[in-house]
């Protein structure tokens, strides 16, 4: 059965169905409906909803709940995610699973509440301090947002790496029919023998990112980076659309990826052989599949709601094998399919 929902609501419901039992938040637009949905529904499932005094406090409550072994989540939008970065670094360092939803808005600074993709660097290249990675999943529909929230919980638990769902204001606000994923039965959620449950009949568990000895800490980080390499091998996800005969490949994610699907259809109607490559995991980024396509497609046009952030990863993947022009909009402006199509026409042969 399909239900008409906003992306924000779909993500909230999916979190509950994934077994999230502790959710901590601080109000910010454009993810308000996610907070409201959790406030209404999570307690009915025996979960904890708590509005914190700040984003900083909220992510540290997540840190505590994750340490106690519970599936936990926080959500926010760009300025709030900046505040959470300290806690995210600690989550990564202490190997705690948790899910963070970022419904991106335009920045830097206070910016505005319109959809944007300016937090790509923050999400995929660090944001917080130190040598760490986040699993970053980028949905392009409310349906996919729900599915990726479920996946985020699974991957995060499996690898003990925090996962971020990187959505945007358009996706959060838009209503569309969603076929909700089946709830995960509690017994299917992995055991967490490392969690802080009281040292009864076992030696004490310690959750920490602290080690004064550089040589010992190096080994901790080496193990962490082995896990990251494993994730890079196993978890790369992307979507290809009409790429077989493409002479120009649009590369776009999230809301922009969705708009570019329309661009592909419009271009094809006009006889232009255009395809779409849509990364679903922004980290690990699909370098290999994109590189393969760059061997045979001469132009890869990256389109983003930013000044060109994922564009850097596209160029790293392509490494000069094809032309890599860029088209982006700034400040919360969302380009129409026709605007993108006229950009396409600058780069494709008639």
């Amino acid at each position: 059965m399909k239900i008409l929902m906003r992306g924000n609501e779909a993500m909230a419901e999916a979190a509950i169905r994934a077994g999230c039992r502790c959710y901590f938040c601080y109000p910010i637009t454009p993810q308000g409906e996610l907070v409201e949905y959790m406030a209404r529904h999570l307690p009915r499932h025996g979960g904890v909803f708590l509005q914190a005094e700040s984003e900083v406090a909220a992510i540290n409550m997540v840190y505590g709940a994750a340490a106690a072994g519970v599936r936990t989540m926080t959500s926010s939008s760009s300025p709030g995610i900046s505040l959470k970065m300290e806690g995210i670094s600690y989550l990564a360092g202490a190997r705690l699973p948790a899910v963070i939803v970022n419904v991106m808005r335009a920045g830097p600074g206070l910016g505005n509440i319109a959809p944007a993709q300016g937090d790509y660097f923050q999400a995929t290249k660090g944001g917080g301090h130190g040598d760490y990675r986040l699993i970053v999943l980028a949905p392009s529909t409310a349906q996919e947002a729900a599915e990726l929230v479920m996946l985020a919980f699974d991957l995060s638990d499996r690898y003990r790496v925090p996962a971020m769902v990187l959505a945007d204001g358009m996706l959060g606000q838009m209503m569309e029919p969603v076929e909700l994923p089946e709830p995960i039965p509690p017994e299917k959620i992995p055991e967490k023998p490392w969690a802080l449950t009281g040292a009864k009949g076992r030696s004490p568990n310690v959750v920490s990112s602290f080690d004064l000895d550089p040589y010992r800490f190096r080994e901790v980080l080496r193990a962490l980076w082995q896990t990251y390499r494993e994730i890079e091998r196993n978890e790369v996800r992307w979507e290809e659309y009409q790429v077989e005969d493409a002479e120009l490949l649009l590369v776009a994610y999230g809301t922009m990826g969705r708009i570019c699907r329309t661009v592909v259809r419009k271009a094809r109607k006009e006889g232009l052989r255009v395809g779409l490559f849509r990364p679903i995991t922004l980290w690990p980024f699909p370098y290999e599949p994109l590189r393969k396509l760059a061997e045979k497609i001469p132009v890869l046009l990256t389109v983003e709601l930013s000044a060109g952030q994922m564009w850097e990863d596209v160029r790293l993947a392509v490494e000069g094998r094809a032309k890599t022009p860029f088209y982006g909009e700034l400040g919360g402006v969302v380009p129409t399919p026709d605007e993108i199509l006229s950009e396409v026409k600058k780069h494709v042969r008639d």
Binding site: G64, A65, A67, A68, V70
Partner: peptide, 10 residues
């Protein structure tokens, strides 16, 4: 805040 998270969780 961390204490809050732990105590609320368990």
């Amino acid at each position: 805040a961390v204490a809050t998270g732990i105590k609320r969780a368990n």
